Amino acid sequence: MIRVLIADDHPVVRQGLRTFLDLQGDLDVVGEAADGAEAVALVETLAPDVLLLDLKMPVLDGLGALLLLGERGLSPRVLVLTSVSDREDVAPAIRAGAAGFLYKDIEPAALVHAIRAVHGGQVLLAPEAAEAMLSLSGPFPATPEDRRVASLTEREREVLALIASGRSNREIARRLTVAEKTVKTHVSNVLMKLGVQDRTQAALYAVRNGLA
């Protein structure tokens, strides 16, 4: 079962999400939070696998909750689910640790798929969110000739490309016909060589440098 925590300041939204998600055989809604501070507190006590997080909430907003989760060493897979369409909100959320960024007009079945995907280690961005990220002049170099790219082995480049395509470690292992433990080693090496903190940043690096 995938344990899901819903954080949204609208009771109707929380109830609608809970009702639908509870119909899925592999999803278990373990709690609801009405603001970011409550969400962080419930993550500490309930240890959900996936946190569905709205951005605009009272007391502590979604970005503040993401930053606080990081400060406290809490690491649920966070899937931002928001009605806010401001492109400037995307990058801070991703850089603060969100594994996905979607909008509330998403189809219900697609949301279920997204929860399963981020739980499995994938990075998932709505097309508008991905475009916003790639249009920014972020900390990643823009040319494939960068020394960090050159330091990657051929196999590490393969792993990076598969990370960028949203594959989990298990799926990469099957694709490359290697042990999952070997994939984890490759992923660690890729993150270290590129100087990025997580799979999300690695995926964005790959896209920006033409490696995906």
Rank of each mutant, 00 (worst) to 15 (best):
M1S: 11
V4K: 01
I6W: 10
A7D: 07
R14W: 05
L17A: 06
T19K: 15
F20I: 07
G25E: 14
D26W: 07
D28R: 10
V29C: 02
V30N: 02
G31N: 04
G31R: 03
A37G: 14
A39R: 12
A41L: 01
E44W: 08
V59P: 15
L60T: 06
L60S: 05
L63Q: 06
A65L: 10
A65V: 08
A65N: 12
P76E: 06
L81A: 05
V84W: 03
S85H: 10
S85T: 14
P92E: 13
A93H: 04
A93E: 01
A93L: 01
G100Q: 07
Y103V: 03
D105I: 07
P108V: 00
L111S: 05
L111G: 01
R116E: 06
G121E: 00
V123I: 11
L124W: 06
L125Y: 15
A129H: 03
A129M: 02
A132N: 09
M133D: 05
P139K: 12
E145Q: 11
R148S: 05
R155G: 02
E156V: 04
E156P: 06
I163Q: 05
A164G: 12
N169S: 15
E171V: 14
R174I: 10
R174Q: 15
R174L: 14
L176T: 10
L176Q: 12
A179D: 15
T182C: 10
V187G: 02
N189F: 01
V190N: 06
L194V: 09
G195H: 04
V196M: 11
T200W: 01
T200K: 02
Q201D: 10
Y205D: 02
A206H: 08
R208D: 03
L211Q: 07
A212V: 09
A212T: 11
